[in-house]
Write a protein that binds this DNA or RNA. Structure first.
Ligand SMILES: [Mn+2]
Ligand SMILES: [Mn+2]
Ligand SMILES: [Zn+2]
Ligand SMILES: [Zn+2]
Lengths: 138, 138
DNA sequence: ATTAGGATGCAACAGAAGTGCATTTATTGT
DNA sequence: ACAATAAATGCACTTCTGTTGCATCCTAAT
């Protein structure tokens, strides 16, 4: 089992207290979080630091950004061994209209999408909206 | 052929000069537009009016909102007879990373997406990013 | 220990989205 | 035609997210 320190070092990122805390916060959450969520969890830390930490994580494929249609960017930890590769790592996301939570459905890869002649597909964002398992009473 | 006036009236919306102009503007564009785009096209009109006009159109299935991942909401006219129905009217959108344009691919309906047990799918947002036909040199 | 580069904190800004209220315009009833 | 009513528009202002510049602090390498 790789420690967080080892993960950060393997990506060439310095290990800092703030980064460890934010990583752990993300790891505990089962849902995608906004910058505000992190901000609320770390009241004494500066917004900018949290923002740049997330950006650093994102650039190094530690977290991926999720655009669930709420207009607010969310983030979630990548899976072990994820390289954010389009072919292998792209999965769908589910946004619940009741609780507002957005979750990664990492087991559900995005199907092949056909685009018209002349168009070149490089990336796909697929978000399903509806009612999540917790809110559907099941 | 239904006139714009007839369309608006059939939806129970009052026909105003502003609404006709905005509708025509949307009809001329082949791409999804932002509120700023409309604002720039109608310099003398107030932002709020444009905003509320688009919202009115949206509530009455005259335009649909598009979240292409740029963080800025875009809008496009619905097809003739569109009721924004999930089964029949949901289509995919393409966002070009070169020209920044987003287009409706109304012929490309969204495939059936499987979600885990307990989840209820009500809506799907599918955006393909890449290079559009005009920018791919084809 | 010194030094250089990265990390953090503070301030400020831009843009999008949204709301409240006053005013204008259109519709309806008399 | 006129008054009453309701909707549409315009103006001001606010909130929230995302972003950048710069100063300071910390850490790691030499
Ligand atoms: Mn995910
Ligand atoms: Mn569309
Ligand atoms: Zn839910
Ligand atoms: Zn293009």
């Amino acid at each position: 089992m790789e420690t967080i320190e080892q993960l950060l070092e393997s990506k060439g990122i310095r290990v800092t207290a703030m980064r460890l805390l934010i990583y752990k916060f993300l790891a505990e959450k089962e849902i995608a979080v906004t910058l505000s969520d992190i901000e609320n969890a770390f009241g004494k830390a500066d917004r900018t630091t949290l923002y740049r930490t997330i950006k650093t994580f994102e650039e190094n494929d530690i977290v991926h950004q999720i655009d669930d249609g709420t207009g607010i960017t969310k983030y979630a930890l990548c899976e072990q061994g994820c390289n954010c590769n389009i072919k292998t790592d792209l999965h769908l996301h589910f946004h619940c209209s009741i609780c507002g939570n957005t979750v990664c459905l990492t087991e559900h890869k995005i199907p092949q999408i056909k685009v018209p002649e002349g168009f070149v597909a490089e990336n796909v964002n697929l978000v399903v909206k509806g009612i999540c398992d917790k809110c559907s009473g099941q």
